[in-house]
Amino acid sequence: MSVVRRVSSAPSQVQRRVMDARSTRWDEHRVAVRAQLVDAAIRIIERYGASVSMDDIAAEAGVSKPKLYRYFGDKAGLNGAVAAKLGALMWESAQVTIFAEQDHASVDDMIRSSVQSYVALVGKHPVVVRFLMANHLFQYSGSGDGGVADQLRSVMEAVADRFTESLQRVHADASIIPLAVASILGSGLSATQWWIDNGREQGVDDKFFAAHLSETTWGIINGAGATVGVAFSPDLPFSHPGFASRLEMN
């Protein structure tokens, strides 16, 4: 009996499992190749900046240009994949600096640590960040899938939920929180663009910039709290009942 005959006579569920396994291996292969191509794109963008072409990326990756189009559709698709990779790195950083510590560390330590991680990532890939900003893939898109800032906003909204809970514990109006999130995101992205375009050349190092972003963030948070008659104690964790307290009103 031939090999073909034996396979063809196998029960349908066995054949289906074989096909599923092949499909899974192919999907995993595509994911791995796609990740390698994105990494190559990041390397060449860091070298050439906004002038990078699909030919440059294909040469860096050691593949044909048609292969890039097969995996990403067009250059916009590849740019979007680069933005998604940077966004994923920011989300992974947040897993360590925010989500893992928000019930134990002081809110001030948590915010400053997350800002420092953000600045470190931007400082590591300033040319890529500038490239994404030029292609409108760093700012908040409003659709949830258009820019790196969508990931930043997701992180911020997770933190904002804790501020909302704190305001609700003292029976304060929590509707101010979305405005505070938009203000922090807008000012932070504007400051980031200035820093990578001019600030670093003018001697504003990552520590100074991170400190500025942290203080600006707290300025907006405290301003939002004061608007609804609440003061926050940044040296306490979110879970502490004294983190938010009502202001004495004259």
Rank of each mutant, 00 (worst) to 15 (best):
D20N: 08
D20H: 09
A21E: 13
R22T: 08
R22I: 08
R22F: 10
S23Q: 12
W26S: 14
W26C: 07
W26R: 15
D27R: 12
E28Y: 09
H29S: 13
H29K: 13
H29M: 13
V31P: 05
V31D: 13
A32K: 11
V33H: 01
V33R: 03
R34L: 09
R34D: 05
Q36C: 09
Q36M: 10
L37Q: 01
V38P: 00
A40P: 03
A41H: 01
I42K: 02
R43V: 11
I45N: 00
R47Q: 14
R47E: 14
Y48L: 10
Y48S: 04
G49I: 03
G49T: 03
A50K: 08
A50V: 06
S51Q: 10
V52Q: 01
S53Y: 08
S53V: 04
S53H: 07
M54T: 02
D56Q: 04
D56V: 03
A59E: 08
A59G: 07
A59N: 06
E60N: 07
A61L: 02
G62V: 06
V63D: 00
S64V: 03
S64C: 05
K65Q: 04
K65I: 04
P66S: 05
P66G: 02
K67E: 04
L68M: 07
L68P: 00
Y69H: 10
Y69S: 05
R70M: 14
Y71M: 06
Y71L: 07
F72I: 04
G73P: 07
G73H: 06
D74T: 09
K75L: 13
K75D: 11
A76C: 12
L78C: 08
G80H: 06
A81Y: 06
V82A: 05
V82G: 01
V82I: 13
A84R: 10
K85W: 09
L86W: 03
A88L: 14
L89N: 11
L89P: 05
L89M: 15
L89H: 12
L89D: 11
M90Y: 12
E92G: 12
Q95N: 14
V96L: 14
I98F: 03
F99L: 14
A100N: 11
E101A: 12
E101S: 13
D103I: 07
D103A: 14
D103N: 15
H104D: 14
H104S: 15
H104E: 13
A105T: 09
A105R: 07
S106P: 09
S106V: 07
V107L: 04
V107F: 00
V107H: 00
D108T: 08
D108P: 06
D108E: 15
M110E: 01
R112V: 06
R112K: 09
R112T: 06
S114E: 02
V115G: 00
V115W: 00
V115F: 01
Q116H: 07
Q116I: 06
Q116P: 02
